[in-house]
Amino acid sequence: MIRITPIQTGTVSIRPHHYCGEAGRSPLGRKIDMMRDKDWLENLPIYTYLIEHPEGNFLVDSGDTAENSSKAYLPRWHPFFQHHVLVKVAPGEEAGDQLRAMGLNPAKDLKGVILTHMHHDHAGGLHYFPHTPIYVSRENFMLANSFRGTILGCLPMHFPKWFAPVLVDLTDEPCGPFPQSYPITRDKRILLVPTPGHMRGHLSVVVRTPDVTYMLAGDATYDQGLLLEELVDGVTYDVATSTDTLKKIRALGIEEPTILLPAHDRNAVERLGSGLILPRS
């Protein structure tokens, strides 16, 4: 039996143009729009997802840390971190604390942690998993550990000193509409697929069960409505690449019954509970 449990590690508030860029705007133009925004889109959830699989427990993303609620944790020179994102993670809301509350030891009871990408709200809880294999794409890891990665929203100065992840190089075995994949489990029911656009090397996690497929999409899209309308966020490095990713996720939902579970979708828990799949026409 395979079961997926969402774990909310606090909330994040972002600017409206961060959430969804305007049609026709370039990646640079979208970021300028985001920086000019006066309003906030408040309190989006920060979800990690626990996958219980016969081969072991896997966590998708590590969530953020309560330390990120303090401005002192963030680079003071960085306008995005100082003025355009607001993380609220209370003590006890971190992924490791919540796993313990579920009866799991985060240092011992996980077969693996899978990072869709290494933005701060997805890689902020890594310190709980020093003895667990942590999977991330090679491309994303190299970017996140550079100064450019910091510019783009990563915090490599806070990655644990012991952090040496399993660097994923995708193989040419297709998974539905995705031309490449990487199996996490021997039965290939948990697969990584490429979903670039939000960040280079971004991966999503496909979980196949006999009845339904789950698409744990990270930040490939922020919610199902944006996906269905093929609307791209303000963070994208290439609008066409992001749009192609959205089309592939949509195509997967047409090929097989699929429940979409992004990291910041307010309706993800309800869809999961009710078994609401992506429209198939």
Rank of each mutant, 00 (worst) to 15 (best):
Phe80Leu: 14
Met1Thr: 05
Gly153Ala: 01
Val269Trp: 02
Leu86Cys: 11
Pro156Gln: 00
Arg148Met: 14
Ser242Gly: 06
Thr243Ser: 04
His78Gln: 08
Thr65Leu: 05
Asp265Trp: 00
Thr5Asp: 09
Pro45Trp: 06
Tyr128Thr: 10
Leu278Ala: 05
Val166Ala: 09
Tyr135Ala: 10
Leu216His: 06
Glu55Val: 00
Ala144Lys: 08
Thr209Phe: 13
Tyr182Pro: 08
Pro160Gly: 11
Asp187Tyr: 01
Leu155Gln: 10
Pro160Ile: 02
Ser281Ile: 14
Ile2Pro: 01
Pro130Phe: 00
Gly197Asp: 09
Tyr73Phe: 13
Leu260Gly: 09
Val12Ile: 15
Gly197Trp: 01
Ser204Ala: 14
Gly149His: 13
Ser274His: 15
Phe58Ile: 13
Phe178Asn: 01
Pro16Asp: 01
Asp37Gly: 07
Lys248Ser: 03
Thr11Asp: 07
Arg266Leu: 09
Tyr128Ser: 15
Asp121Gly: 10
Ala268Cys: 14
Glu93Val: 04
Pro16Trp: 02
His83Glu: 12
Gln224Cys: 08
Thr65Asp: 00
Thr241Tyr: 02
Arg100Val: 14
Pro183Lys: 13
Val206Ile: 15
Ala101Lys: 14
Thr11Asn: 13
Met157Asp: 15
Glu22Trp: 09
Ile14His: 01
Leu126Ala: 03
Tyr214Leu: 02
Glu173Ser: 05
Val232Ile: 02
Tyr222Lys: 00
Arg271Met: 07
Phe163Trp: 09
Lys71Asp: 01
Leu203Lys: 13
Ser181Val: 13
Val113Ala: 02
Val113Gly: 07
Glu229Ala: 15
Glu52Lys: 07
Leu276Gln: 15
Phe129Thr: 05
Pro179Thr: 03
Gly253Asp: 08
Gly29Ser: 04
Leu44Tyr: 06
Asp64Phe: 14
Thr241Asp: 11
Gly253Val: 11
Val136Pro: 05
Ala95Met: 10
Gly10Met: 03
Pro156Val: 03
Met157Ile: 09
Asp244Gln: 03
Cys20Pro: 09
Glu255Thr: 04
Ser146Trp: 06
Val60His: 07
Asn140Met: 14
Glu55Asp: 09
Ala101Pro: 08
